[in-house]
Design a protein around this nucleic acid. Sequence first.
DNA 1: GCGTCGATGGCA
DNA 2: GCCATCGACGCG
Length: 179
Amino acid sequence: MQKLGIDFYRQSAIELAPALLGTILVRRHEGRLFRARITETEAYVGSHDLACHASKGRTGRTEIMFAAGGCAYVYLIYGVHHMLNFVCSVADDPQAVLIRGAIPLDDWKVDLTGPGKLARHFQLTREHNGLKLTGSALYVEADANYQPHIVRTKRIGIDYAQEWKDELLRFIDNHHVKE
DNA sequence: GCGTCGATGGCA
DNA sequence: GCCATCGACGCG
């Protein structure tokens, strides 16, 4: 499998979100490797997107989104759950992709259906905010032999985002879903 | 099986 | 005073 490099993350969120479907998220933690195939993502497309945290401007929390693509944006929501995002595009263009679901691979048996569960099982917290995706602790592998079946829907949990709440910026891979 | 609701903390 | 959620609970 081929580890994806920095150029992959320099894409816009609307390109990266579907491109991530079917790829393999890899986490190295305490000497072990955890791998899972990404099945669900959401695009947050820039400061004009009212659902995007960066629409609030440059703050302590959103600062990392203004970096060049290729690092993680991890934050705490509802005081309970961590959310894993990939910062993408170029510097000062605050776009990101939220990783919402995956299927564990190898002999790893966990439920990764949901962004909170995914971050928890991958043992990611706000300590990992800004982590480079080109390092060894967290990265993505391509899988040229896998063909996702992509469906677009509205994003979840952003009813406050006015006209942006209905944009079809959530991407789901149905490849593995039984009829 | 589905709707409702409370937890809980960082942030502005 | 919000939240890019989850899981427990009550229903019947």
